[in-house]
Nucleic acid binder design. Structure first.
Lengths: 216, 216, 216, 216
DNA sequence: ACATAAGCGAGACGGTACGTCGCGTCTTTAA
DNA sequence: TTAAAGACGCGACGTACCGTCTCGCTTATGT
């Protein structure tokens, strides 16, 4: 994305700037979406000139991609002692992430990437891979603890976990979404329970080994 | 949206036009997303003048909202004999819908609606309500048939069903998405199974903490 | 320059606008010259959008050319009774013209046209031809009246007349130029006398026929 | 313009550079006029950095002023034996000077100086004074030789001489200008004759109204 | 010899104008 | 009355140049 060559002569690039721009870009994107996301506004908000913007990022798409990638790792994967604990933590963390403008933007960028001619493929792949790997690690630990059979449909379970949270938030009205972060646990509980129920049943269905008494 | 008054004098409105415009709008939106979705391009593709566009729809948002609402009811809710049958049919139908540019556009519009200043709230509400009611009917029938307890967390189950399908498609790469419609059943089966598993577990438990005996 | 086709459908072009723009353009050009002559400023001053500007004139050069051509005919060629009278009137008129921002701009445009890659050739030809024809008519009448021999070096005399006035003004300092229009006759007299002296001598030298007693 | 203090410590300024820059500046200015005369281009052409440019000249105007002043003394004033000889030599020299890009640039700079906010007043004064003094010396010698009365309108004659040459060249088309230097004498002769004729007439008369007996 | 000081090429920086294109509005002719 | 056409004021696009500002390097003088 940015120039990586040795310093050489000439004024060095301002290292703070990329961070300020990324923040400004996410604020603008979160405020109005693609329509209303203008390079002029980002430059104005970040207090820089447009030429500096285009010196680093060749287009609007490249800039929003950079901003999303830079801010898309606030997910805290607590290494808990049980699947229940891990799933609840992940759902909570995910819910917070999707309620945050930056996190929600990453989802919208992933969706916009499904259009052709958007130059957003890289961002899409980055986002998908990042989340997939995080969830895989979680379920892998569950398998190692014996809470999950090795042949469990991990990919589908992951999709169910992420998708349920995503759609739960997508279905909220604007005022509901604004107030949601104050009582996250109430929203998290039923989703986590459903996922755990699905996992338990799936384990039964495919292997017959009960998950109920596995932990501790 | 459109005028319904008596013919009166003057040139009659072109009845085909709204359909042509809706199709053109969805094609344009599906092609490049918000960027690249221009009224000029829609008018050009539909073979009409821009003023005709603004005569019917007051803004870009109104047009895309209209187009999405018009094309967002191809979901066939087969009134089958079992929950398994109904869920499989819904997941299949949903998968096809999301793989279609028009259906996928409705999702993207719902996402764009989460930004303030987009005037897309109406579209968001329409889409959410439509799907929610359809799913509710499905699960209501299951309760009547005794396949589901009346206190099952229908809303969360619905979110899981829709969300899993949505995220499954969102996570596909561009070539995978292009090829997906040829072997839908392979993608549908694991998702349907997981949902049914979750339903089965939930049916055996009370709403509070159905799987709680698993840990501790 | 502007579209000349039949009205047809569509909103007709604002006929007032071209005049407003030409005036604004000359004011801007007169104020700061090429540097500082910006399309944005012209649009702002004329109260129109930039697109309207570019709808009519494809470039900055085309606009200034148009403005200069439109305002470059205020020269009043009085059809007097003697060469002396005509020359004095032309020198006075020319002096006033060159002291006026619009007239002076036409000279500067003609000079800029001598650069390659300026697309100002048309303006140059227009200005030169206009003045040349006007002066030719003046001297032609003098020949018809017998004040000038038919083989007089009209072209050189014309160049001397225009050139002397031009350089007289070019050599003025800024404050002198600002005050010059208040006492034009003092500046005009010696120039007119010199031109007439040159004409008289030239007539002697080439033909021997005295000009002194020709008139009245 | 340049620093004149004692050497002191530090790297001495490159003596060749100012000449290279002046040449580059005149080439750029002659090529496209003010539009297209960019500091970046001058630096590029002269093979130096922009900071070096601004170290010596505080602005674009200062640079072009310097360049014009540096190259504006190629006029050779032959101290001939007669007014005819001197005038012919000056007209020839002037014609060559105005046909040369550098000389012509000095005229254009003088014209641009007539705009306010250009910081070109110094250049304007320099150019005007330089030429005025040269011509004055010429006519002063003629007076000393008795070829001209002491009360001859020297200033107006000078303006006529310079102005006629200037306008002669200004009225040329691009191809004519390109070919003009090959047959200068043909262009010089009529102009010199006209000026000499005017001088001759003026010498025989008093300043007031030398040709006044012609009319009325 | 070695610090000090200035010149120099390079190039990032905050701005602003370029000429293009889309917005939503307006004003016309044609159906 | 509606359709099609297209001019209009506005503002963002991505590019180029302005004049300023660090940089690393070079080339001198003064210890």
């Amino acid at each position: 994305m940015t120039k990586t060559s040795r310093p050489g002569p000439g004024r060095p690039r301002d290292p703070d700037m990329e961070e300020r721009v990324a923040a400004a870009a996410l604020q603008e994107y979160g405020r109005t979406g693609w329509s209303g996301f203008t390079m002029d506004a980002v430059a104005r908000r970040a207090g820089i000139g447009k030429s500096t913007l285009y010196l680093r990022w060749p287009s609007k798409e490249a800039l929003i991609r950079y901003a999303v990638e830079k801010h898309s790792t606030p997910l805290t994967f607590t290494d808990g002692n049980s699947l229940r604990e891990d799933v609840t933590a992940l759902v909570t963390s995910l819910m917070r992430y999707f309620l945050d403008p930056a996190g929600w933007s990453s989802v919208r960028v992933a969706m916009d990437a499904t259009s052709e001619h958007t130059d957003l493929d890289g961002a899409h792949a980055h986002i998908v891979t990042m989340h997939r790997e995080a969830a895989s690690a979680l379920f892998q630990r569950a398998i190692e603890r014996g809470e999950l059979t090795p042949d469990a449909p991990i990919r589908t379970i992951t999709e169910a976990l992420y998708g349920t949270v995503l759609l739960h938030i997508l279905a909220l009205t604007a005022p509901e979404r604004a107030a949601a972060s104050e009582h996250i646990d109430e929203d998290v509980a039923p989703i986590a329970e459903l996922i755990l129920a699905a996992v338990a049943s799936a384990a039964h269905a495919t292997t017959g080994a009960p998950v109920s008494k596995t932990s501790r």
